[in-house]
Every structure is written in structure tokens, then in C-alpha cells.
């Protein structure tokens, strides 16, 4: 029963939406389903938030390794939530000056804006910027001319790395006009447009068919392992 009901809902929802795509009368149903999902996911936020507090409080109280980080997580969670929900420090909207909560929490100068501008923004930008360091270390370790394919890959990498900067232009600027196709910046465009596009299309077609087949398996109840086990 615990598995049959979700399977029935999945199958019914999935097939109805597939058919609805072809029937004008029911074409709005997909949007309704998407809204239902958003509502469910929003309610699940509460579940997630509760779980976060529980797990980290437990870590702090048990003094597990890294419990200090849990303390910071909890403090950040509570501070941001209360400032955002309580609209602390927000000026009222000009149209409704007597209503304290009528202003926008994103307004420049508010505590929430401050948290966003000076904490959230630099932190996320830092995490993203770390990619540059990891790319360098991964390239050093992984790019090895082990066989013909790897050599081709290496050659392509060099062309793209050079062609995407002024170095590529400067290195092959001496090539005459009739050989302009061999200039690194032009070779980069050819590689991206022809070889990359062809390869990507093949992968995309495979993925699209994989998605269709997996979705069908889920709808038909053939694959129910995501619900916990392969057979009832």
C-alpha cells in the first residue's frame, strides 16, 4: 500500500499530462501540476529547516567533530530568517506609510540587503572562484597524452585555451589571408561550431532518449527502485 499509492499517483499524473499536451482543452493541466509541485516543495522547506536545526543542534550538544561550524550554521540560519521574515529595519512603502511591513526587504541599506551584499555575495563568489584553482590542478593531473584520442584532446585544449585569448591572435597573426582559417581564433570557432556541436548533439540525443525511457519506466512502475526496492 505504501508503495502502490505513490506509484498510482505517478502513473496517473504522468500519463494524464502526456495526453493533455495533445488536447487543447487540458493544456493548462501541466501548469497546475507544476504549481502543485511548487506548493509541496515550499511546504517541504519547513521539513528541511526543521531537520537542519535538529541535526546541527545534535552536533553541537554532542560536541562532534566540527561542531563549531554547526553553531555558525545555526546562528546564520536564525539571524537571516528572522531579519528576512521580520523585515527588520525596512522602511515603509511610500504608498502605505503607516504600515510598517509594507516596504521591500531588498531595499538598499536594510539589514537583509547588508547580509546579502556583504556576506552572501562574497561567499558565493569565493566558492565559484575556487573553480579556477581546481581546474588548474585537475588539468595538471588528468591531461596526459596516453593514446591517440588523448593527444587529439590535448591539441584541441591548446587551441581553445590560446584561441580564447589575445595570445591566439598574436601567435598566428602572421598567417596570410588565404590561410586565415588556420588562425587560432578561427580554428577555435570551427572546433566549437563543428566538432563540439556534433559531439554534443550525439550526447544530447542519447540523454533525451534515456530520459524518455526512464520516465516511461517510472510511469509504468517497471522501475520502482527509487521508492526503495525493486519489487513489491
Amino acid at each position: 500500500m505504501k508503495r502502490t499509492v505513490p506509484l498510482l499517483i505517478t502513473a496517473l499524473g504522468g500519463f494524464v499530462l502526456i495526453i493533455a499536451y495533445f488536447i487543447p482543452r487540458t493544456q493548462g493541466w501541466g501548469e497546475i501540476a507544476a504549481i502543485w509541485f511548487d506548493v509541496l516543495a515550499s511546504i517541504a522547506f519547513v521539513l528541511g529547516g526543521g531537520n537542519l536545526i535538529k541535526i546541527h543542534l545534535k552536533k553541537v550538544s554532542d560536541h562532534k567533530s566540527g561542531w563549531g561550524y554547526s553553531g555558525i550554521t545555526l546562528a546564520a540560519f536564525i539571524i537571516t530568517l528572522s531579519i528576512g521574515l521580520g523585515k527588520i529595519g525596512v522602511n515603509p512603502n511610500i504608498q502605505f506609510p503607516t504600515h510598517e511591513w509594507s516596504g521591500s526587504y531588498r531595499e538598499i541599506g536594510t539589514p537583509f540587503w547588508w547580509l546579502y551584499e556583504y556576506v552572501f555575495k562574497p561567499l558565493t563568489a569565493t566558492m565559484f572562484a575556487m573553480l579556477a584553482f581546481y581546474v588548474a590542478s585537475a588539468a595538471f593531473r588528468a591531461f596526459r597524452a596516453k593514446n591517440i584520442e588523448a593527444i587529439l584532446l590535448l591539441g584541441t585544449a591548446f587551441i581553445i585555451l590560446l584561441g580564447r585569448t589575445f595570445a591566439g591572435v598574436a601567435l598566428t597573426a602572421w598567417l596570410p589571408e588565404w590561410l586565415s582559417g588556420l588562425k587560432l581564433e578561427n580554428l577555435t570557432v570551427i572546433i566549437m561550431k563543428v566538432f563540439n556541436t556534433a559531439g554534443n548533439r550525439a550526447i544530447m540525443i542519447g540523454i533525451a532518449l534515456g530520459i524518455a525511457s526512464t520516465s516511461l519506466k517510472v510511469l509504468l512502475g517497471v522501475d520502482r527502485s527509487y521508492l526503495g526496492q525493486s519489487k513489491e
Binding site: 588548474a136 591531461f143 595570445a167
Partner: peptide, 19 residues
Amino acid sequence: QLVAHLLMIFLIIVGNVIF
């Protein structure tokens, strides 16, 4: 970006020399 790309090329070459 240009200097970083040149460094990447240098690193790949060094990695292959070692290999």
C-alpha cells in the same frame, strides 16, 4: 584570463613531461 590560460598550458606540458 590570458595569463591563467598560459599557466594551464604550461601545467599540462609539465604534467606530460613527467608522464
